[in-house]
């Protein structure tokens, strides 16, 4: 008993001060891209050709990155002769629509609160069931970590629950393999209405690195109406938490 108490003292209080204080992300972290159309040569198309998931378009209108496909791998930044694509450490990347993830370097439309009738139900307490549908265990791990004392998801009224019957919605990771399709659909159906659907990671949003494999379904967008898109490969835990809280209307800006 004495040892347990000593250990408790040694480990201290470690829950982050967020959202009162902004988190500090490492300088090499890759978040929202910075697109500089004035530098872009337009006709070189180098970034377009190296992108593993064809997330980049470079046309007369300028550069465009589909964050729903982006793996944040920086292959584009390393081939661009003019430095027209850079990545910032902006971690707030969740959106309410698939189209909002297609970023042209100007305004990024962050996720907004759920509509009134549903917000009334879920704004203060949100129970979620996570389903991994061929996820690689990176998105899963960074959802799991939100439950540790460092982030302490419970203080926001959010809980990952053991059964879809206990849940207000599902959080899906992975590109949805053919073998997992039925199980995801059944889990979705088992959640009572009204429900929310959250896609975490580029796989669940677009298929990610497995885009257009015939063994996968390119994520969940063709299967269910999705309420929240959280991009990344995998998204940082802060990106996921920020998305959850925006959906619940718990963040001001």
């Amino acid at each position: 008993m004495f040892k347990v108490l000593l250990a408790r003292l040694q480990q201290k209080h470690r829950t982050i001060a967020y959202p009162k204080k902004e988190p500090v992300l490492p300088d090499r972290f890759r978040g929202l891209p910075i697109l500089d159309n004035s530098q872009c040569l337009k006709n070189c198309q180098e970034c377009v050709s190296v992108c593993p998931t064809n997330a980049i378009q470079c046309t007369e209108k300028g550069l465009q990155i589909d964050l729903g496909r982006c793996l944040f791998c920086t292959e584009c930044t390393s081939v661009c002769p003019k430095g027209a694509i850079q990545f910032s450490t902006e971690y707030r990347l969740a959106t309410r629509t698939r189209q909002d993830l297609v970023f042209d370097g100007k305004v990024f439309e962050r996720a907004k609160i759920l509509k009134d009738s549903i917000h009334k139900l879920f704004g203060r307490s949100l129970k979620l069931r996570q389903v991994s549908a061929a996820g690689c265990n990176a998105c899963e791990a960074d959802i799991n970590v939100l439950g540790t004392p460092g982030f302490d998801l419970g203080r926001f009224g959010i809980q990952i629950v053991a059964s879809p019957r206990h849940a207000d919605g599902i959080v899906v990771t992975g590109p949805v393999s053919e073998n997992m399709k039925l199980a995801v659909e059944k889990t979705y159906k088992a959640v009572a209405n009204p429900k929310v659907v959250i896609a975490v990671g580029s796989c669940a949003i677009s298929g990610g690195p497995f885009l257009d494999h015939k063994e996968v379904h390119n994520g969940i967008t063709d299967l269910f109406p999705v309420d929240l898109f959280i991009p990344g490969c995998p998204p940082h835990p802060m990106t996921i938490l920020d998305g959850f809280l925006r959906l619940m209307g718990r963040l001001k800006q």
Partner: peptide, 22 residues
């Protein structure tokens, strides 16, 4: 088998731009 994404088949003919992400 629920997690099968067909990676090995896609590695054939590589290396491609997706090999490292795989």
């Amino acid at each position: 088998g629920y997690q099968h994404r067909g990676i090995e088949k896609e590695l054939k003919g590589g290396p491609t731009k997706r090999t490292l992400p795989y």
